[in-house]
């Protein structure tokens, strides 16, 4: 119960941050990437600010606690190898972000604002996640068969 309620509150802080920062406004996002056109530098401040708070906050959390408040352990990715799926997947992700002006964290918080573009993007993105997940599992099955 505590775990669910705290996730709701944390999600709300995340969503408010996206809305206030402008990360959920496709025109603003695309303008950040349009150096040769209608450039708007706002998003670099979103990234720098989010990164600074997270870097300092993570250090404090890891320095003062050996486990999280509502879970048994910290679940942190341990993989360190730079492989082809990471690089190719990230390259493809950037193409999609540049086509639409939406990334997953930017889009989801805009779902409740009554526009039509966000649900269209989100349904399509979920289809992409399901397709990629299915293809990857099939590749693993083939490799281990």
């Amino acid at each position: 119960m505590q775990k669910t309620v705290s996730a709701l509150v944390i999600g709300a802080i995340f969503g408010a941050g996206i809305a206030i920062s402008g990360m959920g406004n496709p025109a603003k996002v695309l303008n950040f990437f349009d150096l040769a056109g209608s450039f708007d530098p706002s998003l670099i401040l979103v990234m720098v600010s989010a990164l600074a708070v997270t870097a300092v906050g993570y250090r404090l959390v890891f320095a003062t606690r050996s486990s999280p408040l509502c879970a048994a352990k910290f679940d942190i990715p341990t993989k360190r190898i730079i492989d082809a799926p990471l690089v190719a997947g990230s390259a493809v992700f950037g193409i999609g972000w540049g086509i639409s002006g939406f990334c997953p964290g930017g889009a989801i918080p805009m779902l409740g604002l009554g526009n039509v573009e966000t649900p269209i993007f989100t349904v399509s993105m979920i289809a992409g996640i399901v397709a990629a997940r299915t293809l990857r599992q099939r590749a693993v099955r083939l490799a281990t068969a």
Binding site: A19, G22, M23, G24, N25, P26, A27, K28, L30, P77, P85, L86, V87, A88, G89, S90, A91, V92, F93, G94, I95, G96, W97, I99, S100, G101, F102, C103, P104, G105, G106, A107, M110, L113, N115, V116, E117, I120, F121, T122, V123, S124, M125, I126, A127, G128, I129, V130, A131, A132, R133, R136
Partner: peptide, 30 residues
């Protein structure tokens, strides 16, 4: 909350699909 979309609906459909595939293979997003 300012919300402006300078791209077509088709761009949202294609962009969403490409973002979903890329973020899954890449293991994460922004």
């Amino acid at each position: 909350i300012p919300f402006q979309v300078p791209v077509s609906t088709a761009a949202m459909v294609v962009g969403g699909l490409v973002v979903g595939v890329g973020a899954t293979y890449g293991g994460g997003c922004t």
